[in-house]
Design a protein around this nucleic acid. Sequence first.
DNA 1: TGGGTATCTATGGGATACCATGGGATTTCA
DNA 2: TGAAATCCCATGGTATCCCATAGATACCCA
Lengths: 155, 155
Amino acid sequence: MAGFVSHFTNRLDAKGRVSIPAPFRAVLARDGFDGLYCIASAHCAAVDAGGNDLLAEINKRSEAFAKLSPDHDALAVALFGASENPRIDGDGRMTISDMIRDHTGLADQVTFVGMNYKFQIWEPEKFREYRAEAQRRALAMLSGQVPAPSQGEPA
Amino acid sequence: MAGFVSHFTNRLDAKGRVSIPAPFRAVLARDGFDGLYCIASAHCAAVDAGGNDLLAEINKRSEAFAKLSPDHDALAVALFGASENPRIDGDGRMTISDMIRDHTGLADQVTFVGMNYKFQIWEPEKFREYRAEAQRRALAMLSGQVPAPSQGEPA
DNA sequence: TGGGTATCTATGGGATACCATGGGATTTCA
DNA sequence: TGAAATCCCATGGTATCCCATAGATACCCA
């Protein structure tokens, strides 16, 4: 079954709310996660969002280390300390927290980008730039110029 | 279902009380633990807090040694001697004990950091420093490289 | 086929509930 | 009996719930 696909740009209202695109809501409803799981991306000005599938990916990363160890603690702070669990109201909207606003730099519009098992939250202009760069990289990779990165690339 | 996520900073009042963030209280309520389980972190200036999940991890550690053995006794003293079981009042607040105050160095503000199966209690400024370091280490760990030996860890 | 209607979506705004916080009053314990 | 812990209530700010509206699309039926 298809996951999060396509991208949408919606307006942020005076209360800091934004409608989650209806197709994404449908995917979340199938997933069954309560609300939305969000985590700041470690390598770009976007926030990853999704449900159980995304949470499972995050959990997988920290399971490599023994709990209560310094390594596990550091990883847990970096991952879960940078995560949030916003609710979705009856009209399909979420509230943009300070964390999301600071990390993405978004102001009055929000771009939602489907990435199959998760989607990303972007400031629209920053997403345009990132997308252009991503397409250049994809083109280079597909033409065999650049070796595909080994698996386990941070999302 | 997600555990403790995100981080919050609340004020300590004149009576030494502080509100436990509502999302954390919701997780604790699901967990069913009576009050809060707290233990000083062995490797940083924070206090681990949580419910049955955290307690289970602590128990797992001491069970590695035979009861009544000197090793088990020593570990039990170290673990449970550094533990506390504060209550949560009707308004969702806990009282900061001298142990927590001394071990974290906190003064008038308290930062609560979600780490999924537990959360940590920090002095806000010390947390900022630790977090920056944790993000560096996490990036190194996740990029598949051997993590740099964590010398110079904040005590 | 075309007009009309119902539905869905994004968005705005009022009303309400919740949360963090402060402080008084009461209880507990040494 | 005095200090500390606990209970209880008040309050300001914020988040959430609920309803309204407009535009777009899907649907229906003559």
